[in-house]
């Protein structure tokens, strides 16, 4: 009895993975929600992202891309993302061999405990007051440590600027009251972004009502990209 009391007295309350982030008290705190049940794999998000943000067109540089996961009846997993899904997907595996197949759009998770921000030696990548992870292209030295530290493969070395580049959640659009380009151009509204600090926002409701997951929760990155209907095979 006394033991139980002593323990409960010192035990802090643990945060759920979904709320691992420490939100600011004031102002917006952006997160992303993607509904896999609505994604049709058209690649509009990846395409518009490249155009909106001047991402080099070569198939090695992506701020946003789509993967098709196929779990075959024989138990094997097949994943493809031809040109990041920009040109669409052609189903190569016949229907009768497929146990399950689905699209997974990927982008920066805008982690609140970002491994990439942690390792930047100069303070060139940082979390904005709104919870958006950004790169200062005038200050980045191009050491690429952040690329190594990102568990989700969301960063790349810009081939001509020679600095690291990544998703900004279209910070330039957010600040003008617009949605990110990939969200606006999703034909099925499978992806939304919004203010996690506002309990009435669409994203807060999404997280509340659906059984959402984040990628690689065991890495404790404080990811703010929430998926509905995410399969456990997805990494």
């Amino acid at each position: 009895m006394a033991g139980t009391l002593a323990v409960s007295a010192v035990l802090p309350s643990f945060n759920a993975v979904l709320f691992a982030a420490t939100k600011p008290k004031k102002g917006p705190w952006y997160g992303i929600a993607i509904d896999i049940e609505k994604c049709i794999g058209c690649g509009s998000c990846a395409k518009t992202c490249k155009i909106e943000n001047d991402v080099p067109p070569e198939p090695f540089f992506f701020r946003s891309w789509v993967e098709q996961y196929t779990i075959k009846k024989d138990g094997s997993i097949n994943v493809v993302s031809p040109n990041g899904g920009i040109d669409g997907f052609t189903q190569k595996i016949p229907d009768n061999e497929i146990e399950k197949t689905f699209f997974v759009p990927k982008m920066c998770n805008h982690c609140s405990k970002s491994p990439c921000v942690q390792v930047c030696p100069v303070g060139a990548t940082f979390e904005s007051p709104e919870g958006v992870v950004l790169v200062d292209e005038k200050y980045c030295i191009g050491c690429r440590y952040c690329i190594q530290a990102c568990p989700y493969g969301c960063r790349y070395m810009h081939p001509t600027k020679k600095v690291v580049d990544k998703c900004t959640l279209c910070y330039h659009r957010l600040k003008k009251g617009l949605n990110p380009a990939c969200m606006d151009n999703c034909p099925t509204k499978a992806r939304i972004s919004g203010d996690l600090n506002d309990p009435d926002s669409e994203i807060s409701e999404f997280i509340r009502k659906k059984n959402v997951y984040v990628l690689k929760p065991h890495l404790n990155t404080g990811s703010k990209l929430y998926y509905n209907a995410l399969n456990q095979e997805v990494r």
Binding site: T48, I51, E52, N53, G123, A124, T125, F126, E127, S128, P129, L134, D136, K138, Y139, T168, Y171, H172, R173, K175, K176, L178, A181, D184, N185
Partner: peptide, 22 residues
Amino acid sequence: QYGHYRGNSLNEIAALPVKYVG
């Protein structure tokens, strides 16, 4: 100014042009 980074970079990124006008 806000954290361990160049505060001005926030404005620089925010000032980038919008291409998809809606």
